[in-house]
Design a protein around this nucleic acid. Structure first.
Lengths: 122, 122
DNA sequence: GGATTGTATTATGACATATCATACACTACT
DNA sequence: AGTAGTGTATGATATGTCATAATACAATCC
C-alpha cells in the first residue's frame, strides 16, 4: 500500500512516514491494525530493513504507532491526531506561500483563482 | 543588504541566492549594478568566500548575474525574469499546498479563509 | 607594481542518508 | 524444544551535501 518515488529527493524513511500517515488519514488503516513488519515492508519496497526501522522508530516517537516485541507494530489508538497534525502542516504551507505571494506583489484574487484551479485539477 | 539566518536549515549559499533575487525583485538592485565582491560579502557575512562563490556561480548559471574578471559581478540585463520565476515558484507552492489540503479533506472555503488571515497578518 | 577582482582546485570536517551485517529478546506455532 | 517471524540495537561502510581552508592563476584598476 505504501509506494516510493525514487526520483524524489525526500528521504526514503520520510516517504514511509508520510505513507503511513496518509493511509491512516484516508481511513485505509485503523487503530490497533497491524502494520507490515519491518523486514516484510523492506522486501516489498526493495530497500534495507534498517530504513524501515528508522521510519517506524520516528512514528513511534510521535506516538502514532506502538510496537510489541515478537508481534509487530500497530497503529496507535490516538492516531486521529494525525488529521489535526496534517492540517497544521498544511496551514503552515499556506501561510508560507501566502507571505511569499504578498511579497511578490500578488493579490488574494490571483491566489484564490490559483487555488481553485489546483483544487479541481486531477 | 543581504542577511543570513543562522537558525535556518536552508544552506547559506541558498540564502544568498534568495537574498540577491529579493533585492532585484524589490527594485533595490538594477541590471548592470555591481554586486558586492565575493570576498567582501564573505567578510561582511562572516562566512567563507567559497560559499559566496558557490552562490554567485549558481546565479550565473541561471543567467541572473554576469561576471567580469578583475571587475566584479553584475546584475544581468534580463533580471526581470526573476519576477516571473518567483511567481512560478509561488504557484507551485500553492498547488502543492492545495493538493495536500484536498487530500486532507479541506474545502476551498477553509483555504480562502486561511489565506485571507495570512495575507492580512502583520 | 600593488591591490582587488573572478575563477578553479584540492583537502578536510561535519552531518544526513542508506546499506550491510550481526546480535539479542520476545512471540507464535508445531 | 525447535523453528520462524517479530521488534530492537549496534557497529561499519559508502555516498552526497554543506561549509571551511588554503592556494593558485588571470584580468582589471590605479
Amino acid at each position: 500500500m505504501i509506494t516510493l518515488e525514487a526520483s524524489s529527493k525526500t528521504p526514503i524513511y520520510e516517504q514511509i512516514i508520510e505513507g503511513v500517515k496518509a493511509l491512516v488519514m484516508m481511513g485505509k488503516m485503523h487503530p490497533h491494525e497491524q502494520l507490515p513488519s519491518v523486514r516484510r515492508l523492506a522486501r516489498e519496497l526493495g530497500i534495507n530493513p534498517n530504513t524501515v526501522q528508522k521510519a517506524y522508530a520516528r512514528l513511534r516517537g510521535e506516538n502514532l504507532i506502538y510496537s510489541v516485541a515478537g508481534k509487530g507494530d500497530f497503529v496507535a489508538d490516538n492516531a486521529s491526531r494525525i488529521r489535526d497534525m496534517k492540517r497544521d502542516e498544511i496551514r503552515e504551507m499556506f501561510i508560507a506561500a501566502t507571505r511569499a505571494a504578498r511579497d511578490a506583489g500578488m493579490w488574494t484574487d490571483e491566489i484564490f483563482q490559483l487555488v481553485d484551479e489546483a483544487y479541481s485539477s486531477r
